[in-house]
Structure formats: structure tokens, C-alpha cells
Design a protein around this nucleic acid. Sequence first.
DNA 1: TGAAGTTGTCTATTATCATAGACAACTTCG
DNA 2: CGAAGTTGTCTATGATAATAGACAACTTCA
Lengths: 243, 243
Amino acid sequence: MSMQDTASSGVALWRLVADGIERGIADGRFAAGDKLPGEMEIAETYRVNRHTVRRALAALAERGLVRAERGSGTYVEAQKLAYPLRSRTRFSEIVGAGGREPRGQLIEASDDIATRELARELGLKAGAPLVRIEAIRLADRTPICVSTTWLSAELFPGAGAVFAATRSMTKLLEHYGVRDYRRGATRITAGIVDATDAARLDLALGRPILVVDATDHDLEGRPLMTKHSRFAAERVEFLVENG
Amino acid sequence: MSMQDTASSGVALWRLVADGIERGIADGRFAAGDKLPGEMEIAETYRVNRHTVRRALAALAERGLVRAERGSGTYVEAQKLAYPLRSRTRFSEIVGAGGREPRGQLIEASDDIATRELARELGLKAGAPLVRIEAIRLADRTPICVSTTWLSAELFPGAGAVFAATRSMTKLLEHYGVRDYRRGATRITAGIVDATDAARLDLALGRPILVVDATDHDLEGRPLMTKHSRFAAERVEFLVENG
DNA sequence: TGAAGTTGTCTATTATCATAGACAACTTCG
DNA sequence: CGAAGTTGTCTATGATAATAGACAACTTCA
């Protein structure tokens, strides 16, 4: 198989190889710390040139998923991010606990108007002015999730700019004097990634995603913000703790 | 966006455009007979060169999904294949009823050994010799499903060669003197396509598939063959008729 | 120490991807 | 008819994708 001698599918060969290896890591065939097969062996199993394998491994290494050691082999770096769903959920703490570096980045901030549903979640009237923040969160260099967050524009004026500077929801709330907050009910569903999120999460089109809807409250129970998050299903594992 | 000025994702631009249009057809934004937007307009919405759009449309036209009319426009040809699940289910009849030409093709035939589960379905002992047939079914030039079929090697010796010649399970059974057969219980689940099936079905990696497991019996209730089929979810719609 | 196996780097070639511009051929509609 | 809009075809250019072969640099292990 190659881009030259068969009808092209529009998907580069190295991407097929990279996806195959990533799937192997995701489903446990290659565990964290494991040594991958040699480049030659991978090339033979996929019936592909060794350079094509190297392109695939380079893409995975660039995301921190594998690490090559000259003369020795290529090793699996990452594992599924264990993501406990607790009342006090902080992305940075969860990622940091796994020894990885949390990062956040603003994609877009804009003004919005509360739908009836958003208003109910936030304890506002329908039509109330909102700030809508579209952000992506990464562990090391691997995108984990994209979130759409809505806050009251009256309570948090200029929230978009503050998030762009701090890159953290926790610090954003601190900026407005909120010292602590808790997560309310969380709804989890699954779906297929759309083209926009696929590009943001560096996911192949149509891969499964975990969809999480949740609203955070301050310690008095007043709603602060409501979120709609889409997680790359193959990179994260939710842990629900009973009790 | 282009292959040149951004980090490449390993998926060709024309494929993204083609997938977008096909999704539009699948979810009803473009109905059968509808005129698509002009090539220029599509190019603008995807921010892509017109030639790239033409490449995408050519791929869809080659599969019979759209039809271009010079000077007029490009029109949607296909619609989801309505696939009724009845006791007497024949792929060729279902496809023919929709005015499309059914095709079947052998991918691979090999000997196999009955697992406990396969043996139970076929009324054999575990370890009994089987013939395993891997086949793909198309409506016109669009792949609809890939099936793995197991038959008893003792009852149907050389079944692989017969299927390769006849390209039809019904004719294969006729060759061995089976004049009619009925479908037993059918189990339907969903999943994500793997790389092998994705290539066979001309599906993007990770797209949803409908997984059907079923066993066919002769009129006396003796099991003939058991199947494991994977349908491209976006091209087919199962109809379950009550009664 | 030395052989075998591994990743890293280099050159080279061919096909595909994407863009750009121009014009022909055709349909639709006023 | 004639203008506007559509698909079809041509040439051209630069960047990627994939293959092939060779050799260096390094690690592991007997």
C-alpha cells in the first residue's frame, strides 16, 4: 500500500501508522514504559517504508506519547490520564498529580446571550448577558479537552481577557474575589467528535469523545459558571468515586 | 489552511471537504435530488481552492454519491439504503428494490476452527472444521458492509471457491442443494470502525459502524451459516418491522 | 572486545496535494 | 439573443508524501 500504487484514500500513510500505534497504547497493548517494536518490524507489519514509520513516530514523539532512545528503542511515555470526578475538580491539580504539566489556552472569547437552559443553570434570566470562553486544556503537549464556559457578564466583566492572561479558570475566579468553588451535578455522555473539535484536539475525524456538562458553584451554592466540555476519549479515563 | 502553510494533519484537504459534504448528505442537509452549492461557494466555505473542491466532488461522484451536470450544477444522487430486517433477508433483493445494483466480492477465504461460541451457533462441536469467508457488499459503487461468514467445512467443502465464482451466498447455498433459508435471531450493536474495515468500506478512521451478528437456518431449522457483519452506519438505515 | 540490533541522518527519486490563473462549453433566465 | 452562472479542461508552480539505499552513532549482550 502506498500513496502511489493504490487509489488514494486522502489519508497519509504515516497517519494510519501513527493512529494504529496510538490505539495500541490507548487499549493497553503497549503499556507505559514498554518498548515498541523496532522501526523495521513496524515497517514490515504495516508494509511500509521505515522512513514512513519514523514520520509516524516523530508525530507521536512530538506530542510526548513516545520517546526514542538511540541504539536502544522507542518507549511509551504516556498513559491514559486518570481523571477523578470529585466535587472539587481542578484540571491543573489532576494533571500535575500525574507528573505532567498542565496547560490551558484561550481559543476564543465572545459575548453571548443566555438561552433558557443556560439561564436556569446559572440562576439568571433568559436573555441575560454572558461571557462565552472557548478553551483547550493540555497535559504536556497532548490536548485533553476543549471546553465552552459561560459566565455572567455582569458578575465577571471582561472575563475573556482575564482568562487569556491567566490561562486558568481558578485564577480567573480569584481575580474576581472567588476563593473557592465546588462542582455541582455532572452529566456525562459520549459522541463523535466534529470537525472543529477534531482539529483542536488533534483527533481523527469521528473519533469518540466524552461530553461533560457541569456547573460550578461558590461555597454558598451560588452558580458561578457552567461548562460544556469535550474530552478525547482515548486519552482520558474518568474515575467516579462512590461515597 | 493548506498542506503547505500549516502543520499537516496527515489528512488531505480534499478528503476533509468530501467527508463534510458526505456528512451533509447523510444527515439530510442535502437531500436526494438537491443541488449542491456551486464549486466556488463550497471553496469559500471551506476556505480552499476550487480545484480542491473538484477533487472532493470527483471522489464522491466516483462512488455515485453525487452527479455533476455541466453548466447547471452538482446534484445529490444517493440516499441512505433502507435495510429491512426480516426473516427472509437477501442483500441483493434489498439493494435491487432501491433501484441500485448489488455487488459482492470475496476478500479472503480460509479454513478455520470452531470456537465454542461458533460451534454453538452452528450446532457443531468445538474444534470442528469451518470455512471462513470475508466478503464485501456494495450498492452500485458504494461499499455497504463487510461480512465474516462461517460455514461447516464438512457440509460445504470448497465453499470459498464457490463464493468467489458466484459472489452470492444464496447461490452458494443453492450449489449445495439448499433451496431456501431463513434468518434466526439478529443481534445489533454499534462500534467504531477499525483500520482494516475502514479501508474496505472507504470510511474515515473511527467512523461509527453497525455490527450485526446473525445465523441462518434451513427450513427445518438446521443452522447453515453464521455471520458477523459491519455496516457503514452513515450509508444504511435498518428497518425493524414489528409483527 | 566484538557482533548484532537499534535509532539518527543523509541523498535521491517519483507521485500526490494544493494553489493559481485562464478559458472553453454548457445551462438558465430575463 | 445575451448576460450571468455553472462545470470541464488546460498549464504551471511549490510543498508533501512515500520509497530506496547507505552509513554513522549508539546500546545491548554474549
